[in-house]
Design a protein around this nucleic acid. Sequence first.
DNA 1: ATCCCTCGTGTAATCGATTCCACGAGGAGG
DNA 2: CCTCCTCGTGGAATCGATTACACGAGGGAT
Lengths: 338, 338
Amino acid sequence: MASIKDVAAEAGVSVATVSRVLNDHPSVSAEARTRVMAAVQNLGYRPNAVARSLRTDQTRTLGLVISDVLNPYFTELARSVEEEARALGYSVIIGNADERPDLQDHHVRTLLDRRIDGLLVSPTDGGSPGMLDAARTGTPMVFVDRWIAGVEVPVVRADGRSAVRDLVAHLHALGHRRLAIIAGPAATTTGSERVHAFREALAEHGLPLPDAYIGQGDFQAESGRRVTEGFLDLPEPPEVVFAADNLMALGALDAVRARGMRVPEDIALAAFDDIPWFVHTDPPITAIAQPTGDLGRAAVRALVDRIEGRPPQSVTLPARLVVRRSCGEFPATNRSES
Amino acid sequence: MASIKDVAAEAGVSVATVSRVLNDHPSVSAEARTRVMAAVQNLGYRPNAVARSLRTDQTRTLGLVISDVLNPYFTELARSVEEEARALGYSVIIGNADERPDLQDHHVRTLLDRRIDGLLVSPTDGGSPGMLDAARTGTPMVFVDRWIAGVEVPVVRADGRSAVRDLVAHLHALGHRRLAIIAGPAATTTGSERVHAFREALAEHGLPLPDAYIGQGDFQAESGRRVTEGFLDLPEPPEVVFAADNLMALGALDAVRARGMRVPEDIALAAFDDIPWFVHTDPPITAIAQPTGDLGRAAVRALVDRIEGRPPQSVTLPARLVVRRSCGEFPATNRSES
DNA sequence: ATCCCTCGTGTAATCGATTCCACGAGGAGG
DNA sequence: CCTCCTCGTGGAATCGATTACACGAGGGAT
């Protein structure tokens, strides 16, 4: 592969001049410029990003460590992150933690070894050692979706509290009183916050949230199935199951169906995170939709601000309730479909 | 951030010795080794992958350019690719082409600039200039899922022909005679091959595939919707719509539903590519399942073989039909569910 | 005519690693 | 006791870029 030296030789100038042309530095004669351009064309020369990064100490690359690529919410997030980053002249390297702290750590370390300019993380647990190190040693970093308390890092996330309140009001109005939740891991903020918001919303209607109605999941489909089976085995099973993410809702649906029961006649179902398929499931699933694209874009902007020396800002965007049919229906009401 | 020089100073040895310890070269005294290890610990030193890559001319990184991250098929593929690559000591950088040739080219170029060791591509079109260049100049490369004729690159893909034959037999047995297909872009192999296989299978039953029953889609949901509307507007609409990927099936479902029609009573639906949600759609969708994980792993192994100087092999794995309820039901039959 | 700038260019240092080569110490063999 | 290896080590070149510094040519002001 042709290097800058080859270009210099071909154009009959020094490597310094070639470099100046490539980075369009002002003091290069028009003649030298055209000769260099021609040589670049002839040789099909492309600058070696590795060498450039070594010298300039910047890679124009962002790392994104997400909890689970198979979760449509995170893939949409990844997509918007890449889009915005590209618009700002950065590339993105995605690391998939699969909800495993050790994998998360592996990716953070690998990304740091590659000297990425900044890191976007949706932490899987309370913070793996490598990640905390990175935050402490001053690697530009922004948390997205989930965050870790006590770490000085901007956070870009959705606030689901008012949407959860809307959901509970909706369920209450439909006559449901025994509501259960499939929670995410308590070590994640989204895991604990959603339970918290749910409990508070229930309290507003004078409803309890007994321990038996809090199932411990891990944001994966299999745990949704397992927890739902537990609920159905209870002497007094809940009337509603609220899954804290879309994959656990999928698992819950599997479990309900395996028992030959129907949604919403036998049991109602709602989920946090909305995805296109929820419109076509049987029945269409009522969900809380996050402004995923906006979240991703805001996170990139915050990170790039931090990298380029501007003060980054934490951002919180509201989520909203999308009512469908999985919790039952009013005789006549206007329901929204996305 | 500490460099190898700092470690050398701290340990009281030369950088050469430090490097030897790090790459466990045999001729280093036990004493020097422990001193270096201690220094590494103290300083929290991590080798700079950028510098190492510049010197050794290898990045231990694979590039993966996929057609659309939002398509669950490709995200599953990406996941298995990353997994296998990690097991073999490589990282993966994913580029999302969004079915756009210009974006595909952007990613191929960016990845090449980063001097990745090899490239896994699922080409969006007949081959963008950058990609053909890469293939010609000898960048280790493997096509996955889709490929380009006439380019000397190993291909790892699924063969859907027998599954399509099974599907058509199933549809025929259910009494359907007017079968339509929503095709992918003709420039992609998966776009044209699936139509071809469908047409051949129809011919075996003496059924025609009129032009009006071939809709031109682009593997995105919106095109599935548009094409399906066209089918429904026909004087004699088809009895079955076969979508060449899962997103177009989603669009088709949208269109059918918007007309207030039901699947399979009013029109049957089948799709290429199976995804977990198809079990829970209304109705569950009959689909052709590819061995996605195996495909991803085989592709990585082929690419790494090529990179490390072993002869790479093309691989073709069979896809299989998964019958559900979206095409209608027999009075009594054994249907499989995943 | 002299001085001083500005402009275009080249030489060489540098980034952080790897690795070839040279060198000295010590042991084995004659 | 001398020679020859082997082993552990360090010096320095190298990968491909960027960039500080030096330098010579040419133009404007005095």
